[in-house]
């Protein structure tokens, strides 16, 4: 797991509800077998015309937001498919965090496993950040995971909830599988104690 502690970065607003993973990374890029290189395809159908030229009116193509590392979106961001490619494409593009009032469950988990911090802020704070990133040049915020806050230089100080254990893992960059394997004895004991998992005919 990649680490996340504190990050200051430029924000880019994409303030729509229900932005699904089909938009974040369209399926035509899911046939690849690699884990990297998906940034080029992030929001492909919104970013590019069919002939590959950039769509001028899409926010990620706006020079004002070049180099942004924090995406600010509407409710239920990342709903839809389980494709982890959505998180990979965001991180590969350079994003370190997504701020939204709520997230699709699977995307929320996937992003933390890739060091991309999903920040659940209430609607009012999200809208404030959106408004400031639209009206101000080079508007950035600082996300501090330790204190669970998002601040800016204009006095914004919004806090967010995150599962304590997930936070701990992100702060220290712990590997999930390694952690689980510390409990390997318990897994073995569970397997020995229980019959309910061994009911496929022909298997013992």
């Amino acid at each position: 797991m990649n680490q996340f502690t504190r990050h200051e970065g430029l924000t880019v607003p994409l303030f729509q509800s229900n932005i699904d993973t089909d938009q974040i990374i369209p399926k035509q890029f899911l046939t690849r077998i690699e884990r990297s290189g998906y940034g080029a395809f992030l929001f492909n159908d919104w970013r590019f015309e069919p002939d590959g030229t950039e769509k001028a009116d899409f926010v990620l193509n706006d020079p004002k937001y070049a180099g942004a590392t924090i995406l600010v979106a509407g409710t239920n961001f990342g709903c839809g498919s389980s494709r982890e490619h959505a998180a990979w494409s965001l991180t590969d593009f350079g994003f370190r965090a997504v701020i939204a009032p709520s997230f699709g469950d699977i995307f929320y988990n996937n992003s933390m496993k890739n060091g991309l911090l999903p920040v659940r802020l209430d609607e009012a704070a999200t809208e404030l950040i959106v408004a400031r990133s639209q009206s101000l040049e080079g508007y950035s915020v600082t996300i501090d995971l330790e204190s669970q806050t998002v601040i800016d230089e204009l006095g914004l100080n919004a806090s967010f909830e995150i599962d304590a254990f997930r936070k701990h893992c992100l702060l220290s960059g712990l590997d999930d599988i390694g952690l689980t394997l510390q409990n390997e004895e318990m897994i073995t004991k569970y397997e020995a104690d229980t019959e309910i998992t061994h009911r496929f005919a022909g298997l013992t």
Binding site: I106, D176, I177, L181
Partner: peptide, 13 residues
């Protein structure tokens, strides 16, 4: 449904 990191997690554990 789970993501690919979790698929790997289930494979291993």
């Amino acid at each position: 449904g789970i993501g690919t990191s979790e698929v790997e997690h289930v494979f291993a554990t």
